[in-house]
């Protein structure tokens, strides 16, 4: 059941990493968004996959009638989705502000914190 999704996850990771290795901030961000999805699906798959039966208990019963999808990874992923969305939103705004103030969207040109022509410390005593 899992193998197809697992290979898709690998593809997600590949694309995410490839995008994050760009020097353009916006591509890095796209990569981050995809990375988040990849990680979420990875956790989801780790709980093993079951087709179509949501972990709900019917109204007249106290335990699920049949085997359901594993609820725990769903809960974990729910947490992770919200967190990765939060980080994505923050980084997006950060990128926008950085572009606004630094005038560039290329990470290699962001050299204020670590200036290119950094001098050696003073000699002498």
């Amino acid at each position: 059941m899992e193998s197809g999704v697992v290979i898709l996850i690998g593809l997600f990771f590949t694309v995410a990493v490839y995008l994050m290795l760009s020097k353009q901030l916006v591509r890095i961000l796209l990569g981050i968004a995809i990375l988040g999805n990849a990680v979420n699906m990875l956790i989801f798959t780790n709980g093993r996959l079951t087709r179509e039966v949501p972990p709900l208990i019917p109204e007249n019963l106290y335990t699920p009638a049949t085997a359901t999808a594993n609820p725990l990874p769903q809960a974990l992923v729910l947490t992770a989705i919200v967190i990765s969305f939060s980080f994505f939103a923050f980084l997006l705004v950060l990128a926008f502000r950085a572009y606004q103030e630094l005038g560039t969207d290329e990470v290699n040109s962001m050299r204020i914190a670590e200036p290119e022509h950094d001098q050696n410390p003073p000699q002498g005593y």
Binding site: V6, I9, G10, F13, A16, N46
Partner: peptide, 19 residues
């Protein structure tokens, strides 16, 4: 591309092995 594929491949293999 090579690095990206390597990461993707590695995780795929691990995940397959686990599942």
């Amino acid at each position: 591309g090579v690095v990206a594929v390597a990461v993707g491949l590695g995780l795929t293999l691990t995940l397959l092995a686990i599942t």
